[in-house]
Nucleic acid binder design. Structure first.
Length: 847
RNA sequence: GCCCGGAUGGCGGAACUGGUAGACGCAAGGGACUUAAAAUCCCUCGGCGGAAACGCUGUGCGGGUUCGACCCCCGCUCCGGGCACCA
């Protein structure tokens, strides 16, 4: 084997055979299998696992190449690196594919996994495949069912009605992406909203902690992601106020509103509730215009949810015929429905203060409702008839009974206290965050482990009955409905409590549940008697570096944070572990023609074709070189040629200069044995490159790290023409060669490993130490300083590195170009940035 | 609409904390080698003017702060991501 490759290395670069050789060797030697018992410091790097959609697309290659470079660099830096891979394998596309291709979701999914695994292996990623997981396997989701039961015991699971997209002709729930312009994507029927009883996880119980712990992530997570999460959670302080109903209905005596502006309470002239509000029907039951109200409800409920939130949305409402009473004045307040009131924020009801809220103002003007000013800006007066917009600023309270004359902002508390004392309200904190609906009326998901017993009602499964296995012998339906409710062998079951007849829950869990804890399962993926090994968790968690698409900035990351906290509180995670991902890198999207390439739109760029043509190393190199990781980039086929050309250039340099190269145990280890300027310059470039690449790798600027390596290679091409063959010169050159291969190896591991062997090294590069650089080697005795006049570049100056400020100023003022541009002007000042630039501030003398 | 980003040559992008804009690469043009092609090597390459030296101008648009702004502030435009059942 070795003979063949040694001979081959004398010839041209054949990426495919080099890559196959090293992948086979790594596999045979278990190079990337990692132990949970190791004296070295640990490092856990994880990329967001893929949905097995069929083929790896270029966004995956970008994501996993970034992660692989991090893993390989950390390995070379002496860490025990955990770098696993798995499959987020439940989900809607499998069901759609099953219909389209007349196959089974499981068959489709497992075939995709096999295909994509081999594609990832072809890319040479350093994964520990012994820790691979697939979330659709019962060995995985059984523990999720177990967590569900524990959460239910803790009261963190509950059921309530929630409205869903419903296709009346397919009789099925639709995902948002299956609703196109308000129509069903399959049959184009008008989509309706239907209330269904759903399972919810109480994420709002952790709202405060999810918000406060964002502080722990500062520095480790991008600021913009922290901001997005903070805004999503959306904590606001205010008051709950109860407006008693003039005539109680259905046993309800009052309507509760949430407001952040209790100071405006005396300005209430109407109240608006959401069309979805539970009291709508009881309230209008005896109203002569109930039909109009019902028509309004139906129309608004079937509106597009984004349109409904639009600022430009025409405010619309309808009177219910009912009145509430003002909690302080007892005045009658008419109760309206409004299209701008959101059912799932606050209490689904808001008080109308038209003078001080723009939406209420628009509403009042439209329906000729009274406007009452209760806050007045200092030194002005506001008249309801002439106001053109609501006044939302600060001022003094008027028309507010005991509060007249007080400043409004500090009075928020006083008003709330009065409400509390009189039993009509209390201070409260409201989250924008809503509880997490985990019910899916889908087949391809993890079954929710509860049953409905004829005798006992709702009964959770017993832990020893887990897993509740998703049956695979079902007939999938063409209309997209879950076949589970019609699968008698699954539905008919025995009640775990009384042993009587029962029906199994046929909802499955949201796939976000699986992806909320997989990172922990990788620490001991084959364990069967428990979800985790406590010691393995303590050793590996948190994930040191998590890497994935910015499109997951809110939902997935928030759910994973939430799960970390609940698994901690259930006693599975170490008590001190509050956050799952210490550092987060959100990579930008790979766009094509300015738009998103996604699973749903299909893959435009096929990485396997690129690999066939250029090899895996080139594909990896190009994905990292094209842009810095956090930025989006627009894929263009033409650039990849350059990456291929660079690797061939490295290959050729070594093959052609083989006579000059001697194997070195370490690169950059030569103190001051440079024999001439040329050798010293090459050595300086080498050490500067080690410095820059180390820094750039550390801040994930792989594109500039690669550019620096390219510069070093360019310098070596220039140097070799003139460099001699003395032992010292050969060592200088060989050191640069070793540096190039070492620095480049995390990016293009196969070619570097091959060339490393060609150089005569016995030990594999994958285990070589990361190079260090020597400050003495990078030092210069001359510096180039920029010369500016009034901030504009006018020339440069070569100066001694040790030059002092005064001498530098003098030299600058004496410079020809500077003198030309200051002729006839008076020098007013000189700004000196040591070692960088001199700026002469000059102007005309005033006559 | 709301929340979060982005905009730099013909193209992908660099410029790290306000200090020489355009590193590195692609494309293009010119040249060398070759019977030829491929491969490779060398040179040019933001715009305008100039033979050159050099000058003016230039980082989406309009203002501002500063000795100095791609970078900071104010006001816009356009593009991208997310918006809870795509994952």
């Amino acid at each position: 084997m070795d003979k063949r490759y040694t001979r081959m290395s004398q010839e041209r670069y054949h990426p495919q055979s080099v890559e196959e050789k090293w992948q086979a060797r790594w596999l045979a030697q278990n190079t990337f299998t990692v132990s949970n018992n190791d004296a070295r410091p640990k490092y856990y790097v994880l990329e967001m696992f893929p949905y097995p959609s069929g083929n790896i697309h270029i966004g995956h290659v970008r994501n996993y190449s970034i992660g692989d470079v991090v893993a390989r660099v950390k390995r070379m830096q002496g860490f025990n690196v955990l770098h696993p891979m798995g499959w987020d394998a439940f989900g809607l596309p499998a069901e759609n594919a099953a219909i389209k291709h007349r196959t089974h979701p499981a068959a489709w999914t497992y075939a995709n996994i096999a295909n994509m695994r081999s594609q990832l292996q072809r890319l040479g990623y350093s994964y520990d495949w012994s820790r691979e997981i697939a979330t659709c396997r019962p060995e995985y989701y059984r523990f999720e069912q177990f967590f569900f039961l524990r959460l239910q015991e803790k009261g963190l699971v509950y059921r309530k009605k929630a409205s869903q997209n419903w296709c009346p002709s397919c009789h099925t729930v639709l995902a948002n992406e299956q609703v196109i312009d308000g129509l069903c994507w399959r049959c184009e029927s008008r989509v309706e909203q239907k209330d269904l009883t759903q399972w919810f996880l109480k994420i709002t119980a952790y709202g405060d902690e999810l918000l406060n712990d964002l502080a722990l992530l500062e520095g480790g997570w991008p600021d913009r992601i922290i901001t997005m999460q903070r805004n999503w959670i959306g904590r606001s302080t205010g008051a709950l106020v109860t407006f008693p109903l003039e005539s109680p209905v259905a046993g309800v005596t009052g309507i509760e509103v949430f407001t952040t502006r209790p100071d405006t309470l005396f300005g209430v002239t109407f109240m608006t509730i959401a069309p979805e509000h539970a009291l709508v029907e009881p309230l209008i039951k005896d109203y002569e215009k109930a039909g109009d109200v019902r028509a309004f409800v139906t129309r608004i409920r079937n509106m597009d949810r984004l349109d409904r939130q639009a600022e430009t949305l025409e405010k619309e409402g309808v009177f219910t015929g009912a009145y509430t009473l003002h909690p302080f004045t007892g005045e009658r307040v008419p109760l309206w429905l409004g299209n701008f009131v959101l059912a799932d924020y606050g209490t689904g009801a808001v008080m109308g203060v038209p003078a001080h809220d723009q939406r209420d103002f628009d509403f009042a003007r439209k329906y000729r409702l009274p406007i009452r000013v209760v806050i007045c800006p200092e030194g002005e007066s506001l008249a309801p008839e002439t106001m053109e917009a609501a006044f939302t600023g600060e001022g003094r309270m008027i028309n507010s009974g005991p509060f007249d004359g007080a400043e409004n902002m500090p009075s928020k508390e006083a008003v709330t206290e009065k409400l509390e004392k009189e039993g009509n309200g209390k201070a409260t904190i409201q989250f924008r965050l809503r509880d997490w609906n985990i019910s899916r009326q889908r087949y391809w998901g993890a079954p929710i482990p509860v049953v409905y017993c004829e005798q006992c009602g709702l009964v959770p499964e017993k832990e020893e009955n887990l897993p509740i296995v998703l049956p695979l012998d079902v007939k999938t339906r063409d209309d997209g409905r879950s076949p589970l409710p019609e699968t008698d062998t699954f539905v008919n079951c025995v009640c775990p409590a009384c042993g009587g007849k029962a029906r199994r829950e046929t909802d499955t869990m949201d796939t976000f549940v699986e992806s909320s804890w997989y990172f922990a399962r990788h620490t001991d993926a084959r364990k069967t008697d428990a979800p985790f090994d406590a010691q393995a968790l303590r050793y590996w968690l948190p994930v040191d570096q998590y890497i994935g698409g910015v499109e997951h900035a809110i939902l997935h990351l928030l759910y994973a944070r939430f799960f970390t906290k609940i698994l901690r509180d259930l006693g599975f995670f170490p008590p001190e572990l509050s956050e799952p991902f210490a550092h987060l890198l959100t990579q930008g999207m790979v766009l094509k023609d300015g738009g998103k390439m996604s699973k749903s739109k299909g893959n435009v760029v096929d990485p396997t074709k690129m690999m066939d043509k250029f090899g895996a190393d080139t594909v990896r190199l190009f994905c990292l070189f094209a842009a810095s990781p956090e930025r989006d980039f627009d894929w263009d086929d033409s650039g990849i040629e350059g990456s291929s050309r660079f690797l061939r250039r490295v290959w050729r340099l070594l093959v052609e200069e083989k006579a000059r190269i001697i194997p070195l145990d370490a690169c950059g280890a030569f103190a001051s044995d440079a024999v001439n300027d040329l050798a010293r310059d090459l050595r300086r470039k080498e050490h500067l490159t080690v410095k820059k690449v180390g820094e750039d790798m550390g801040r994930f600027q792989f594109n500039t790290a690669i550019a620096a390596i390219m510069e070093l290679v360019n310098a070596m091409y220039l140097a070799r023409e003139k460099l001699g063959y003395s032992a010292k010169e050969r060592r200088i050159f060989s050191s640069a060669v070793a540096t190039v291969l070492t620095l480049l190896s995390p990016v293009a591991p196969h070619i570097c490993e091959e060339l490393w062997e060609v150089c005569g090294h016995k030990r594999q590069l994958v285990n070589a130490p990361w190079p260090t650089w020597d400050a003495a080697a990078t030092a210069r005795d001359m510096l180039t300083v920029a010369l500016q006049v009034n901030g504009r570049l006018r020339g440069t100056l070569e100066v001694d590195a040790g030059v002092d400020k005064v001498a530098l100023e003098e030299a600058a003022l004496a410079n020809q170009a500077v003198r030309r541009h200051t002729a006839g002007l008076t020098v007013r000042g000189v700004v000196v940035v040591p070692g960088k630039l001199v700026n002469i501030v000059a102007g005309r003398v005033c006559p």
